[in-house]
Deep mutational scan, measured.
Amino acid sequence: TTYKLILNGKTLKGETTTEAVDAETAERVFKEYAKKNGVDGEWTYDDATKTFTSTE
């Protein structure tokens, strides 16, 4: 399943996707990605669109 991440950081904005077996796995991948890029925001998830959003 393809999951999408929308980053709305103070210094980094953008989108990326990952293939994962479930939302929990995708969330771990995306949170590590955000951390590596210095984004520490509030997380939301929309199951209908398989989209995570992190907003600082």
Results as ranks from 00 to 15, higher is better:
residue 13 K to C: 14
residue 17 T to V: 09
residue 5 L to I: 03
residue 2 T to K: 12
residue 55 T to G: 04
residue 40 D to N: 14
residue 37 N to V: 15
residue 35 K to L: 13
residue 54 S to A: 15
residue 13 K to F: 11
residue 13 K to W: 11
residue 42 E to I: 14
residue 24 E to A: 13
residue 15 E to P: 03
residue 5 L to A: 03
residue 9 G to L: 07
residue 16 T to V: 15
residue 45 Y to Q: 00
residue 37 N to F: 15
residue 27 E to I: 08
residue 32 E to P: 01
residue 12 L to S: 09
residue 41 G to S: 05
residue 29 V to K: 08
residue 39 V to S: 04
residue 50 K to P: 01
residue 6 I to M: 05
residue 30 F to P: 00
residue 8 N to A: 08
residue 1 T to M: 11
residue 10 K to P: 11
residue 42 E to N: 11
residue 52 F to T: 00
residue 3 Y to Q: 03
residue 10 K to C: 14
residue 39 V to G: 03
residue 13 K to R: 11
residue 26 A to R: 01
residue 27 E to Q: 11
residue 34 A to N: 02
residue 13 K to V: 11
residue 11 T to Y: 14
residue 4 K to E: 03
residue 23 A to R: 14
residue 29 V to L: 11
residue 44 T to Y: 09
residue 6 I to K: 05
residue 17 T to Y: 14
residue 7 L to F: 12
residue 51 T to F: 01
residue 50 K to Y: 07
residue 49 T to I: 06
residue 20 A to F: 06
residue 32 E to T: 06
residue 7 L to R: 00
residue 22 D to Y: 03
residue 52 F to S: 01
residue 23 A to D: 05
residue 34 A to D: 01
residue 54 S to E: 04
residue 17 T to E: 10
residue 17 T to Q: 10
residue 34 A to Q: 02
residue 21 V to M: 12
residue 51 T to L: 03
residue 4 K to R: 13
residue 35 K to P: 01
residue 7 L to S: 02
residue 23 A to L: 12
residue 46 D to H: 06
residue 26 A to K: 00
residue 18 T to Q: 06
residue 18 T to M: 13
residue 46 D to C: 09
residue 29 V to G: 03
residue 5 L to E: 03
residue 1 T to G: 09
residue 37 N to Y: 15
residue 36 K to Q: 13
residue 33 Y to S: 01
residue 41 G to L: 08
residue 36 K to G: 06
residue 25 T to G: 07
residue 11 T to M: 12
residue 53 T to M: 09
residue 43 W to R: 00
residue 4 K to M: 07
residue 38 G to V: 03
residue 27 E to N: 05
residue 36 K to A: 14
residue 19 E to I: 15
residue 4 K to T: 14
residue 39 V to L: 09
residue 11 T to A: 11
residue 8 N to Y: 12
residue 37 N to G: 05
residue 53 T to N: 05
residue 20 A to P: 01
residue 28 R to I: 10
residue 6 I to Y: 06
residue 19 E to L: 14
residue 34 A to E: 04
residue 34 A to F: 02
residue 50 K to A: 04
residue 45 Y to P: 00
residue 56 E to Y: 08
residue 21 V to R: 11
residue 21 V to K: 13
residue 24 E to N: 09
residue 48 A to P: 06
residue 19 E to G: 04
residue 19 E to R: 13
residue 24 E to L: 11
residue 36 K to I: 13
residue 12 L to W: 15
residue 3 Y to L: 02
residue 18 T to S: 04
residue 9 G to H: 14
residue 23 A to E: 07
residue 45 Y to C: 00
residue 3 Y to V: 03
residue 48 A to R: 11
residue 47 D to C: 07
residue 30 F to I: 00
residue 52 F to H: 01
residue 6 I to L: 07
residue 35 K to I: 12
residue 38 G to W: 05
residue 25 T to P: 01
residue 36 K to Y: 10
residue 15 E to I: 13
residue 32 E to K: 06
residue 12 L to D: 05
residue 17 T to F: 14
residue 53 T to C: 07
residue 25 T to W: 08
residue 21 V to H: 12
residue 32 E to S: 06
residue 51 T to C: 04
residue 26 A to I: 01
residue 32 E to D: 11
residue 41 G to P: 05
residue 46 D to P: 00
residue 10 K to Q: 11
residue 49 T to N: 07
residue 45 Y to V: 00
residue 26 A to E: 00
residue 41 G to E: 04
residue 29 V to F: 15
residue 40 D to F: 14
residue 43 W to Q: 01
residue 26 A to T: 00
residue 11 T to K: 12
residue 1 T to C: 13
residue 32 E to I: 08
residue 27 E to L: 15
residue 2 T to W: 13
residue 11 T to D: 11
residue 53 T to W: 09
residue 37 N to A: 14
residue 31 K to Q: 07
residue 6 I to P: 00
residue 14 G to P: 05
residue 28 R to F: 08
residue 39 V to D: 03
residue 44 T to M: 09
residue 1 T to P: 09
residue 36 K to W: 08
residue 42 E to F: 13
residue 1 T to L: 09
residue 29 V to P: 00
residue 7 L to P: 00
residue 55 T to Q: 07
residue 35 K to T: 09
residue 28 R to H: 08
residue 3 Y to K: 03
residue 17 T to C: 13
residue 23 A to N: 06
residue 9 G to W: 14
residue 7 L to G: 01
residue 10 K to R: 13
residue 30 F to K: 01
residue 21 V to S: 11
residue 6 I to D: 02
residue 11 T to Q: 11
residue 47 D to V: 10
residue 6 I to C: 07
residue 25 T to V: 08
residue 21 V to N: 12
residue 12 L to P: 04
residue 11 T to L: 12
residue 41 G to I: 06
residue 42 E to A: 11
residue 51 T to W: 01
residue 21 V to Y: 12
residue 44 T to N: 08
residue 46 D to E: 06
residue 25 T to D: 09
residue 5 L to Q: 01
residue 20 A to E: 04
residue 17 T to R: 07
residue 29 V to N: 06
residue 32 E to W: 06
residue 26 A to Y: 00
residue 19 E to W: 15
residue 29 V to A: 09
residue 10 K to A: 11
residue 17 T to G: 03
residue 12 L to A: 10
residue 56 E to P: 06
residue 38 G to Q: 06
residue 24 E to W: 09
residue 48 A to I: 11
residue 37 N to M: 15
residue 47 D to I: 10
residue 13 K to Q: 12
residue 18 T to C: 15
residue 41 G to R: 02
residue 2 T to P: 04
residue 10 K to G: 07
residue 46 D to M: 03
residue 40 D to M: 12
residue 21 V to I: 14
residue 35 K to A: 13
residue 31 K to Y: 05
residue 29 V to D: 04
residue 17 T to K: 07
residue 27 E to D: 05
residue 11 T to P: 04
residue 19 E to N: 13
residue 46 D to N: 10
residue 29 V to M: 10
residue 36 K to M: 13
residue 38 G to K: 06
residue 7 L to N: 01
residue 7 L to E: 01
residue 16 T to Y: 15
residue 7 L to W: 10
residue 38 G to M: 06
residue 29 V to C: 09
residue 24 E to V: 11
residue 8 N to R: 11
residue 20 A to L: 02
residue 8 N to I: 14
residue 29 V to I: 14
residue 44 T to A: 09
residue 36 K to V: 12
residue 32 E to F: 05
residue 44 T to Q: 10
residue 25 T to Y: 07
residue 52 F to Q: 01
residue 47 D to M: 08
residue 43 W to L: 08
residue 43 W to G: 00
residue 28 R to A: 13
residue 5 L to R: 00
residue 32 E to R: 06
residue 55 T to K: 06
residue 4 K to Y: 15
residue 21 V to C: 13
residue 37 N to I: 14
residue 1 T to I: 14
residue 35 K to Q: 11
residue 1 T to N: 12
residue 13 K to H: 12
residue 27 E to M: 14
residue 38 G to S: 05
residue 11 T to V: 11
residue 44 T to C: 09
residue 17 T to S: 10
residue 9 G to Y: 11
residue 33 Y to E: 03
residue 19 E to Y: 15
residue 50 K to V: 02
residue 32 E to A: 12
residue 16 T to R: 10
residue 35 K to C: 10
residue 20 A to Y: 02
residue 6 I to G: 01
residue 46 D to S: 06
residue 53 T to I: 09
residue 12 L to F: 15
residue 49 T to F: 04
residue 1 T to A: 10
residue 33 Y to D: 01
residue 38 G to L: 05
residue 14 G to M: 15
residue 35 K to G: 06
residue 38 G to D: 06
residue 39 V to Y: 12
residue 19 E to Q: 14
residue 5 L to D: 03
residue 48 A to F: 10
residue 21 V to W: 13
residue 12 L to C: 15
residue 25 T to C: 08
residue 23 A to C: 14
residue 24 E to Y: 09
residue 3 Y to F: 11
residue 5 L to F: 09
residue 5 L to S: 02
residue 41 G to M: 05
residue 55 T to W: 08
residue 50 K to G: 04
residue 9 G to T: 09
residue 30 F to D: 01
residue 56 E to V: 08
residue 41 G to Q: 04
residue 16 T to S: 09
residue 50 K to W: 04
residue 13 K to D: 05
residue 41 G to C: 05
residue 7 L to Y: 12
residue 51 T to V: 06
residue 42 E to R: 09
residue 23 A to K: 15
residue 3 Y to N: 03
residue 7 L to D: 01
residue 9 G to C: 08
residue 23 A to P: 12
residue 35 K to H: 11
residue 10 K to D: 08
residue 52 F to Y: 05
residue 26 A to H: 00
residue 2 T to S: 08
residue 12 L to I: 14
residue 16 T to A: 12
residue 29 V to E: 08
residue 28 R to T: 08
residue 3 Y to R: 03
residue 52 F to D: 00
residue 39 V to C: 07
residue 48 A to Q: 11
residue 23 A to S: 10
residue 1 T to R: 10
residue 55 T to R: 06
residue 15 E to M: 14
residue 16 T to F: 15
residue 49 T to P: 00
residue 18 T to V: 15
residue 13 K to I: 10
residue 8 N to S: 08
residue 10 K to T: 11
residue 54 S to I: 15
residue 15 E to D: 05
residue 53 T to K: 06
residue 6 I to T: 03
residue 31 K to W: 05
residue 4 K to C: 08
residue 22 D to P: 00
residue 22 D to L: 04
residue 23 A to Y: 15
residue 3 Y to H: 03
